[in-house]
Design a protein around this nucleic acid. Sequence first.
DNA 1: AAAGTTGTGTGATATAGATCACATTCGGAA
DNA 2: TTCCGAATGTGATCTATATCACACAACTTT
Lengths: 188, 188
Amino acid sequence: MESKEVLKAHLAKLAVLTDEQFEYLFSHFTKQTFKKGQVIITEGDMVNCEYFVIRGCLKSFSINDDLKMFILQFAMPTWWASDYNALYNQTKATINVDCISDTEVLCITNADREKLCNELHQLEHFFRWRTNRGYVATQKRLLSFMNNNIKHRYEELLKSYPELYNTVPKNLIAAYLGVSRETLSRLS
Amino acid sequence: MESKEVLKAHLAKLAVLTDEQFEYLFSHFTKQTFKKGQVIITEGDMVNCEYFVIRGCLKSFSINDDLKMFILQFAMPTWWASDYNALYNQTKATINVDCISDTEVLCITNADREKLCNELHQLEHFFRWRTNRGYVATQKRLLSFMNNNIKHRYEELLKSYPELYNTVPKNLIAAYLGVSRETLSRLS
DNA sequence: AAAGTTGTGTGATATAGATCACATTCGGAA
DNA sequence: TTCCGAATGTGATCTATATCACACAACTTT
């Protein structure tokens, strides 16, 4: 399936758009490809775009003062990624985004998204629901952190995203779960 | 200031609405008052409404298998609260909401919010941005959990919400920060 | 004012997970 | 095919925080 079709099918789940409307909004996206390990957003830089993953896998992450990495999000195909704090508030990035594997994305600027949301009520509806879902998912993750032990969280993660088990090295899974790779390895 | 004025001023920060439009949407809200300790949402129940706090303070929280409470959110005046996971997906509540002090709220049903968002593009815009902010705030909290020690997180919280220091007992602050009250007490 | 209830401080001990150290396996590049 | 770095497993400590236990202060309620 072509990237255009992937986006169209994705939008159709939450928004009703005519073909003309879709063609119009699609003209605001640009296709980009990256190699494994390439960096897309670097801490400290300004952020202008968000990325819709077509193929491959991204991670967004931060490095703390002790040089420990924490992964905020993996982004598999049909997921969106950016530093939303920086993007929405037009401030410098506080997180990084890079490629876990060779990746193809569709990219749209913050300004274009806002313009399109203003022009197309249905698109504003789509983006409201995308954020609603992200908000609820992040709250759930916070609750899981506080309420469940690591083993439980690991099993929960693998149940929700079985594809991660083979795609993503264990040290990255550990960085997502917020434990050391040694502890993850000892789980069972 | 009357509750109607509070909501109007709050909406005006992100949406442009005529007086008629505001009156129309306000007619969908109902005013409710609760006493300190009263429960608004109970785990396991269905959730139909979300609440805009006018006066007082709410907390949303979960209790895990070890009977430990984790506070997902405090809701001070002009904050919104509900179990959004349950509300958006029309499933049973997994968190509780109750009153830290005597509280007055404006209440709107999920169905009415969706209806109004569909009728008024500007309101959909408002709710998209409200969730955007909530999403970013929750991500920041997750990052702070992983990257900062308790003392740092406590100071960060008091800097962001100094009113909590005198309003909310320390055991609840501990439950929000995800530490025992003893550890919080030993901090400085 | 007495009595219960809720909130807070602090010592002693227990424990989950981090950290350090090293061995082993695996997959890609020369 | 060999070599090197990345990924993984596992033992031996270390440490931050939880847990238990108690004292006391600060409120409500009667």
